[in-house]
């Protein structure tokens, strides 16, 4: 069921001839109830795939926006267990939107890979990205996920040469995730022209749809990347909307979903516009 959900979604998008909009949010940010409300609202606002962060105290590859999102969630008592519970609740209203969990190794090690994979699959998660598990350390986790038909998505980056891309894709399924900048999330900006040849390299090595993330903040940039990749991931810009809404006392869910809507529209119309230009 699970890998199938990712494959079905990308097959449908391919038929439509457009890129996926992948929305990253932090589970339980700013609290469980609001986080769940945001999650449930994402597909309606235009998210084709959801990346759901599970918070970790020491997120070494995140820039300040996602670091702060993790701390907000942890302060409100968010855990990996509650993150999976949130997915179960989401699955009661949506059975088709793929959910990719994204986070760091230690909470998973703490739970045990087999137990985690079983619980995550049962909750309705489809895939997993672990920032600090490179291919060299991935086998035990990949085996556990395989047993539950869940995808492991190992990241490709600007420093991954063709030899490494092969190693990365050996244990990657679902889609390939290309990190567009060498750096942490939400700081440097991605350049579609620079990204384009790398997307082709990753696509050639993996035979999978390629989504691009890190450094995409605006509808314009999302559209530009959507013209060269199979999917566009936006994270920091969304969690910043949570922080902004809290700061000015606005409704968090409405503000986040409005941003999702504008980014999703840009991604959906990107190739149409490029054809008419």
């Amino acid at each position: 069921m699970t890998k199938a959900r990712i494959d079905a979604r990308f097959a449908a998008l391919k038929a439509e001839g457009r890129a996926a909009f992948v929305a990253y949010v932090m589970a339980g940010d700013p609290d469980y109830a609001t986080g769940l409300e945001i999650l449930k609202g994402l597909p309606g606002a235009g998210a084709d795939v959801i990346e759901l962060g599970f918070p970790f105290s020491d997120p070494m590859a995140e820039g300040p926006p996602i670091q702060r999102a993790a701390l907000r969630a942890l302060d409100k008592g968010m855990t990996l267990t509650k993150t999976l519970q949130m997915i179960s609740e989401f699955r009661q209203v949506d059975q088709t939107t793929p959910i990719i969990l994204m986070g760091y190794a230690n909470p998973l090690i703490n739970r045990g890979f087999e137990t985690f994979a079983r619980d995550a699959a049962a909750a309705g998660a489809d895939g997993l990205i672990v920032v600090d598990i490179p291919p060299e350390e991935a086998d035990p986790l990949a085996d556990a996920l395989d047993a539950e038909q869940m995808s492991l998505l190992l990241l490709s980056t600007p420093t991954s040469d063709d030899a490494r891309l092969k190693i990365i894709q050996k244990r990657t399924s679902g889609f390939a995730y290309y990190v567009s900048v060498a750096g942490v999330t939400g700081v440097k900006e991605a350049d579609a022209a620079v990204v384009a040849p790398h997307v082709q390299r990753v696509r050639a090595a993996s035979g999978l749809p390629v989504c691009v993330g890190f450094g995409i903040r605006t509808p314009e940039r999302a559209a530009a990347v959507a013209r060269v990749a199979d999917g566009v991931v936006v994270g920091s810009a969304l969690v910043e909307e949570v922080a902004e809404a809290l700061a000015v006392n606005e409704t968090v869910t409405a503000r986040v979903l409005s941003k999702v809507d504008s980014l999703a529209k840009a991604v959906r119309s990107a190739r149409v516009e490029s054809l008419t230009v």
Binding site: M60, A61, A105, V131, D132, I133, P134, P135, E136, E137, L154, L155, S156, T157, P158, T159, S160, D161, R164, I168, V179, A182, G183
Partner: peptide, 20 residues
């Protein structure tokens, strides 16, 4: 060769750093 001291050690870093 994998940088392991028995169960411990290893290389748990983001892919960007792995070539380095």
């Amino acid at each position: 060769a994998q940088g392991r001291f028995g169960d411990y050690g290893g290389r748990y870093v983001p892919e960007t750093l792995m070539p380095l």
